[in-house]
Simulated scan of single mutants.
Amino acid sequence: MKFVLEVDMDRFVDDADKELGRILRFWGGNMEHYDLKPGDGSMVNNSEYQPVGEWRIVEVPETSAAPGRE
């Protein structure tokens, strides 16, 4: 499995580093509420509750395994 977080930082109005930090803290603090199984995911919002990305859990084919994980 792979955890994928995509955030369009061009959609941040100000303080991109603070906004991204807020998103990471918020998601990290709420991960206990998710099963984290393939297919799980959700939109990611900025501090103004506007969508700026998404996270998702995806299956990774065996041939795409990371180096050293064979």
Rank of each mutant, 00 (worst) to 15 (best):
V52S: 05
E32A: 08
I23D: 00
I23A: 01
K2H: 05
P61T: 09
E48S: 09
D10C: 06
A65S: 15
N45R: 13
P61D: 13
L20A: 00
R69I: 03
E59R: 07
S42P: 01
D8G: 01
R11K: 15
R22H: 04
D17W: 03
A16V: 04
P67Y: 06
F26S: 02
G41N: 04
M9C: 07
M31L: 12
D35E: 15
W27H: 06
A65K: 14
N46Y: 06
W27I: 06
G39Q: 09
M1F: 05
L24T: 02
L5Q: 07
G21Q: 05
E62K: 11
I23H: 00
N30M: 13
G29D: 11
L5F: 03
S64G: 11
R22I: 00
Y34W: 14
K2E: 15
M31S: 06
R11E: 10
P38A: 14
V13H: 15
L24G: 00
D15R: 05
N30Y: 12
D8K: 04
P38K: 11
G29T: 02
A65M: 12
V58E: 15
D15E: 06
D35N: 14
E59A: 11
D35C: 09
D17H: 03
P38Y: 10
V58Q: 15
H33C: 08
E54R: 14
Q50S: 08
M43G: 14
M31Y: 11
A66M: 12
W55N: 06
M1Y: 06
L24M: 09
D40M: 01
G39V: 06
R11S: 10
T63K: 05
M43E: 15
P67E: 08
E6G: 04
L36V: 02
V60P: 06
K18L: 09
F12N: 01
A65T: 09
R56A: 12
K18Y: 04
R69C: 10
W27G: 01
D40F: 00
M9H: 04
D10T: 13
R25D: 11
D10K: 13
K37C: 14
N45L: 15
E62M: 08
L36R: 02
D14I: 10
V7C: 03
R56F: 06
Y49L: 13
G39W: 03
A16G: 03
S64E: 14
D14Q: 14
V52C: 09
V13S: 09
P51Q: 06
L24W: 02
F3G: 08
V52W: 01
N46R: 02
V4F: 12
F12S: 00
P51T: 08
Y49G: 01
K18C: 01
V58F: 08
A16D: 07
G21A: 08
D10Q: 10
E19M: 04
R25I: 11
D17I: 05
R11C: 03
V44H: 02
L20K: 01
S64R: 02
A66W: 07
G29P: 07
D35S: 14
D14E: 13
N46E: 03
D40E: 14
V60Y: 02
H33N: 11
V13Q: 15
V60W: 05
D35K: 13
